[in-house]
Nucleic acid binder design. Structure first.
Lengths: 203, 203
DNA sequence: CCACAAATTGCGTGCCACGCACTTAGTGCG
DNA sequence: CGCACTAAGTGCGTGGCACGCAATTTGTGG
């Protein structure tokens, strides 16, 4: 009864498709990092396509904007959170399950340069926010399943999901801003500790 | 020592400028609502400009995308939150001050059709998320001021600001999704109640 | 082996963001 | 009360991008 099912296909075609998508996304991010936050306009579509070994037309079969391509990896990563939470044992308290899921979600830690690039570039930040927001829905569903609430009717699971996503986002920003000596997982734990006391169900 | 100062100018020029900006934003939103979430592509720049009684070139002196123009009112509204919180009495407990600020911020309640349009249109939602994220910084600064923390070093004020913004956002979505019988302020209160218990300072 | 489906590509079209230069309108000072 | 100065509005030209369409290549299944 999953609302989001990401099957892992053995189909050759589908695998190629995934590969090209990742190739384009990786190329886009790499070029963006090379140019830096202020040179985003210099990253042309044809450059991305060429770097990915693909035609410009194909690039935009997969993405409808450069921002989307650059943030693809982050979007895919964010989508994992809900699934990971579902995989936690059902009898685990929500607070622990959430923490564990978020930490597990951060393995391996995201590419620091990439995250930094995205967080420091306004246009990319917007796209990243969209990615985070998209991840909230499956997360809310997973939370609802654990708490016996309904994401379509109740505020609780949606607020919790949004708050957790917000904490992860802030933690990421903090991590890329600092000197990086503190492990990402630790920053995540601290950020979550600020909002998790609010898991108290009241309705 | 404000980081964001929105002066209210009596200058004729500046007033005209503000009027133009609002005229364009209002026209953009109105046209978008007319076309509905699926007809966003039909809202051309020249239509917006014409409806606002201004040249297309002028339109894009103010906004660099239709989405930005359509969501301008929401962005301006979001920016108010930090200022409102600062205006609350300094001795008021953070939890109460936050609630009061958010409620006050919702007066007058936002245009339901506009909010609905924005929430139901993916491209606009992205822009709205950016607006919310932009409002987080001044909010975090206001929270930091109240709690004696530093938004540049500490996680706490940033996490709290993001969580509050997230709650407001979710409340807004819930409000426009439902039948609207419940006042927006009540939805806000309920949403905040889920995260405000987390105001416990731990570091 | 063959028909079918799906992905890649080239081409053409309409739209848009933005730099530049010019005009028009407000402002402040002598 | 003009007069220089500044700032906003505007027209035009350019480069770039998203996307529909149709042809081609590349897997897939009977």
């Amino acid at each position: 009864m999953h609302a989001t099912d990401d099957e892992q296909p053995r189909d050759l075609r589908t695998r190629r498709k995934l590969e090209t998508r990742e190739a384009i996304g990786a190329a886009a991010l790499r070029l963006a990092i090379e140019q830096g936050p202020d040179g985003l306009a210099l990253v042309r579509v044809r450059d991305i396509a060429e770097a990915a070994g693909v035609s410009p037309r194909t690039y935009n079969n997969y993405f409808s904007s450069r921002e989307e391509a650059i943030c693809a990896f982050q979007a895919d990563r964010a989508r994992r959170l809900g699934r990971i939470l579902r995989a936690r044992p059902a009898d685990e308290p929500l607070e622990e399950a959430l923490t564990a899921a978020v930490i597990e979600h951060a393995i391996p830690p995201p590419d620091r340069a990439g995250l930094r690039m995205i967080m420091e570039t306004p246009e990319l930040e917007g796209e990243a926010l969209k990615a985070f927001a998209l991840a909230e829905r499956p997360l809310a569903e997973a939370i609802a399943e654990r708490t016996g609430t309904d994401p379509d009717r109740d505020l609780y699971p949606n607020v919790m999901a949004a708050a957790v996503a917000a904490a992860v986002r802030v933690a990421g920003r903090h991590w890329v801003t600092g000197d990086g000596s503190e492990p990402f997982a630790d920053v995540l734990r601290r950020a979550l500790a600020h909002i998790l006391p609010a898991v108290t169900r009241k309705e």
